[in-house]
Design a protein around this nucleic acid. Structure first.
Lengths: 210, 210
DNA sequence: GACGACATTGGACCAAGGTCCAATATCTGC
DNA sequence: GCAGATATTGGACCTTGGTCCAATGTCGTC
């Protein structure tokens, strides 16, 4: 269950807590990287080469845990957050959970509770990573398309026939066939169905603005 | 912003609270149906002909709000839950939010806070309803397919060619063409791309077991 | 036993998709 | 100005997909 490559990022301004939690997580077999402030964490190069999650104190001077959560935005996807706080209240926990937190624990926390939360967060991180990797692969292929090929692909997955696409783009049907063939090759789609699914997954052409 | 057809289901065992909240919601223009217990709510015929949400007390004898939430399961999709509780703690709120609650408020609650939560929950309900309706339409069409047509559709959206499908099903390509044509007609798909998208949306053929 | 739904197939044809080879026109960066 | 990427098109040809009309066989129901 425990992935030795999994990294737990720990952010807490209290030395004693940080050390205690770090010790616990390390003894459980995780790699731990601790920071005394949200700033320090953000300034670090946190390349998640392996699944990772963030154990975060809420109350901290300057930037609070909730601030950091907002800062990370949807990047949380790759790094689920487990909040850990001494003086948490209901509104605070609700806000954190609405913001996509994986869990919200209060100190003093039982070791088992923290470990369970971390394990679940990591499980989520792994799933997210798989999804992200798949997405990245498809986006990479999409980037190799020329502007024209992208236009053609958009109309192809919209269900238009070559003839209609040619009319839309003011060119010959023959040309469309060529572009279409290249699109299939570059996107590594072996069938139209597959191409449509790839497009759906990345929200193409809507999110093509990315 | 306020939909006069929107119904708020209110479940609270305390008469005074129930009356006060009901009055507030009614004065805001909502239709309100109040229940004194989770049981009474479940026994009612809650046909959501219009968007609806559930305002739910947590502490109640017999079945608690959290129990009711679990009971509703994914049916929550059609009826987001706003919890309202007098003695809520952090773990309780976290559990509720993890369970998919729209919000979790503590008494005494500010009128504006409750109204905002309800408005947001209803917005979510509306979105869910749109999605559900679309799903239902597609599933309805799917049900009109004969078993054989379903098999063919599965292989078509998998990207197989007619010839391959014929081989898989041990029949002639000609037959596949006919089935395929019927599938397109019954599913009201004007292109293969559209058919693939319909299939994706309902998770066909994986969820075909439904 | 007749009727309707379902599955199957043939023939005939036409439309659409896909590929190989080859050629032309732009445009951009060095 | 040239190399290379991009966009375009033609010809020739073959595979697929789709449709119309017609027909046969099986099953379960009334």
């Amino acid at each position: 269950m425990i992935d030795p490559d999994a990294t737990i990022f720990l952010v807490d301004d209290e030395d004693s807590v940080r050390r205690a939690v770090a010790r616990l997580l390390k003894s459980a077999g995780y790699r731990v990287r601790a920071f005394a402030s949200a700033r320090a964490f953000l300034d670090s190069d946190r390349e998640p080469s392996a699944p990772a999650c963030l154990v975060l104190d809420v109350q901290m001077p300057e930037m609070t845990g909730l601030d950091l959560q907002r800062e990370l935005g949807s990047a949380q996807a790759g790094m689920p957050i487990v909040f850990l706080t001494g003086h948490g209240d209901v509104p605070m926990s609700v806000r954190a959970m609405k913001g996509g937190a994986a869990d919200f624990l209060t100190k003093p926390v039982q070791d088992v509770d923290l470990l369970r939360a971390v394990a679940q967060a990591l499980a989520r991180a792994r799933e997210d990573r798989v999804e992200q990797a798949a997405l990245a692969t498809v986006l990479e292929r999409l980037e190799r398309l020329t502007p024209r090929e992208r236009e053609v692909m958009a109309l192809v997955v919209a269900g238009l026939r070559n003839k209609q696409i040619a009319y839309e783009l003011g060119t010959a049907e023959k040309t469309i066939k060529v572009h279409r063939g290249r699109v299939m090759a570059k996107m590594q789609a072996r069938s139209l169905a597959e191409l449509v699914r790839l497009a759906e997954r990345i929200g193409f052409p809507e999110e093509a603005a990315t």
